[in-house]
Design a protein around this nucleic acid. Sequence first.
RNA 1: GGGGCCAUAGCUCAGCUGGCAGAGCGCCGGUUUUGCAUACCGGAGGUCAGGGGUUCGACUCCCCUUGGCUCCA
Length: 967
Amino acid sequence: MEPGGNRRPRRGPGRRLPRRPPRVQRGHPRRDAAARGRTAGPLRRRRRAPRPARPHSGPSHPTPRRYRRPRHEGRPLMETAEIASRFLSFFEKNGHTVAPSASLVADDPTLLFVAAGMVPFKPYFLGERTAPYDRAASVQKCIRTIDIEEVGKTSRHATFFQMLGNFSFGDYFKERAIPLAWELLTSPVAQGGYGVDPERLWVTVYLDDDEAETIWREKVGVPAERIQRFGVEENYWSMGVPGPCGPCSEIFYDRGPEYGAEGGPAADEDRYVEVWNLVFMQYERGEGGAKKDFPILGDLPRKNIDTGMGLERLATLLQGVDNIYETDTLGRILRDASERTGVAYGDDERSDVMLRVVADHVRSATMLVSDGVRPGNEKAGYVLRRVLRRSIRNLRLLSGTDASYLHGLTETTIGAMQGIYPELRHDADRIHEVIETEEKNFSDTLRSGTALFGRAAERTRSTGADRISGADAFQLHDTYGFPIDLTLEMAAEQGLGVDEDTFRTLMAEQRETAKRDAKAKKLGNADVSVYGRLLESAGSTDFLGYTDHGTESRVLGLVVGGESVGAASAGDQVELVLDRTPFYAESGGQLADKGTVSAPGRGTVDVEDVQKPVPGLFVHRGTVREGTIALDDRIEAVIDSDRRASVSRSHSATHLIHSALRNALGPSTGQAGSENQPGRLRFDFTASNPLATSELSEIEDEVNTVLSGDIQVRDFTTSMDEALSMGALAMFGEKYGDRVRVVEMSDYSRELCGGTHVAATGQLGVVKLLGESSVGSGVRRVEAAVGIDAFRRLSRESLLVGQLSEQLKTPREELPERIDSLVSRLRGAEKEIERMRAAQVLQAAGEVAQNARRHGSALLATHRAPDGTTADDLRRLAADVRQRLGDDDPVVVAVAAVPEDRPVVVVAVNKQGQAGGLKAGDLVGLAARALGGGGGGKPDLAQGGGTDASAVDSALSAVEQRVAQTS
RNA sequence: GGGGCCAUAGCUCAGCUGGCAGAGCGCCGGUUUUGCAUACCGGAGGUCAGGGGUUCGACUCCCCUUGGCUCCA
């Protein structure tokens, strides 16, 4: 850490750095170091020496804000949106289906986010699902946070990026993928290509992939000297599990001699930058220990193509700028951050890094929120929180103030990105709200953290140390979320250091325990592969439950204790996979059906739960009630129809409540989860404030009015686009482009939904909201009873009110006022009693004081108050008597009583008494021991007690003895 | 998934090794009559999140539940 803190990096004359000269004139430009990334070390060590102070440039001359525009003057700049649309139309022209970007939140439970362009297509490559097309192309949003610390320090690390990719599912292979990529890159701009100079392109192929090399040389015409061979590390792809694998071929761009040595990608990674990676899924790989050491089982029956080209990186090259942060989109955000904070870009490496971090993080946060992620303490929400808080922190460092720039920057980000993602504009209000709420939460954290820091600093100084301990710094970070860089900075401001080594050790320890734990958890996860294999052998389960409550079917899979078995017998916990099923598997908040699966004459299974551990596979969990059940058995599957009907009522009610909520709170209210049980439902939604009671009853009223209209409930299947254009509500993470099921209740409610519903809303009977509560920050929950359960509840409550009315002899409508008045009268009466009792106790004070006896110089007053006198009263009495006896002589007052069944004793001693060695605590301890207990307090007033109520008098005389001895 | 912390007046929070539940702001009343939070005096306001335990005695110690904050994965 540098002395003096770094709160205002650009302030202070010594820090001002000269603007960089244009890059071509630089012998060994600083940016090259940045481009070299991780190998270059922390940036601040590469800072140049400051230039002498600039000549005085006149009064009231504002600091010029400089931002280096991309170096493209004189030729048209191809904007990122244009690069993306060219990519898609090129492949569309070549027979590809354009697939819209999937949500950043991965459909795959093993992944936190979509981190590569091929993720949405993974099921097709793995053969889990049949692709609806042979060829596809996409621009895919991606989030990757592993390198979050590198962001801004290198030319290409970002937490959010977009991948251009074309995919072939058993259709074309190398012979077509290679020329297509080349054609798009090199064909002239006027003809829809990117117009890259072919002379600047190099390619690499895998060690033994002669086939690819031949295509490059003969079909494309790349000279042999610009083709290089790379090994497993760079040019071989596999997923680390059995499945497809194969060689890759990459296209590199030569940025020119000023960036490094000649000799192709093998020689210099900074000069030759990777542009496009073509993956040829050619072989089937087997089980293997190490990641690069596995057996090849043979050729894949259907070979696939998966390619990926980083949109930001391509834009960097096509726009002739130095790094991804200076391209049109990120550059716009960066420039905005620079203007808002008043910190010029290009002046100082450290503030440049911060500006880049802000640009990247604000963009990531905006995109994440748009895809439905909310800041939280785990998983996706935590990643979002981290990037948001890092941006706020960096903005504060840059501007040197606590001012908020996030709203404006988010707005700029939406403007910069809406060309590719028009939904951002539509979601703008919600995005702003989420981000600003988090900003406020972070401020609260910082405020309380600052107070805690102050205490830690005080503690440090009081022990004479000059460094805040690592444990304190870690506690601030771990428990209170107070960032370590802030601790360092504030410590420096107070002339203190921080024990960073210990801090790091503690951090490493925490990481270790979390990892160990995650590993232990893996054991439970391992059996997911069982279901993968089942899906492979059995195929997707046919779901008949929308229309049928029972069907004949066949047992295709049987799992006991996580292992596939051939048969199970009575008492076994089993998991069944059927050919087809009427059982609804828990999803979309709707609980699973229950029922039975029986093989006539052989055995019966009670089905308790149904889940889809992998998409498409229904797993029926239950217990074999009698007989046996075996693979290939012909069975009868029947669901519990009453339960189903009840759950369906809840689900339909959920849709009505959803609509009513949106009508009441506005369209930014989104569903955040739900659970439909028989007769009861729970609906979570986004809202920053609690619902007023009046709003709740309005919503309830609206729902019941609508349902009594007995609207037909209709469902149909359509395309996602069609559904959205009809205004159907979709949860986040819904797969775009797929066929979707829509459930509609005339124009009142229309939602994408896979669940089961009633035929008409009249079947719901009545919906009763039971209450509203908070689930977490920004998310609230309503619960409701539906149908007969709702009726019974209302009926019970009505009965209860009747009972109250009778007991209080008050008409029902007047109950609230009646209770109010009863409560306040009761309180008044209690206070009066308290007051009177205290007065009564104190009445004795005069007499007690008069009866004080003298022991030597000391005055001792003892008194046994009547039973029922409380400890509070005894204290008042003792203090009162002590005061009456004055300060002239040493005074001891000992009073005792039995408030309930156990005796209490209080001793008061005045100043002189204490000076003479009479301590209330000691005396009371003496008395309390006589009572069979203990006691304590302060030297002037102490209290004790015991269990033996008959010993009160001897307790008081024990005090008297001691006083007599001492005085 | 695994840790850490917190819950006290309407709000923000103090409350030490268990012994009388507090401050600031806000609110109400009075005096003052005002240059951007006017000053002064007085007052009301508490199931110390809920439940159990230890103890003569629990806001304080232990356990459970609920809610919130936070870190790591």
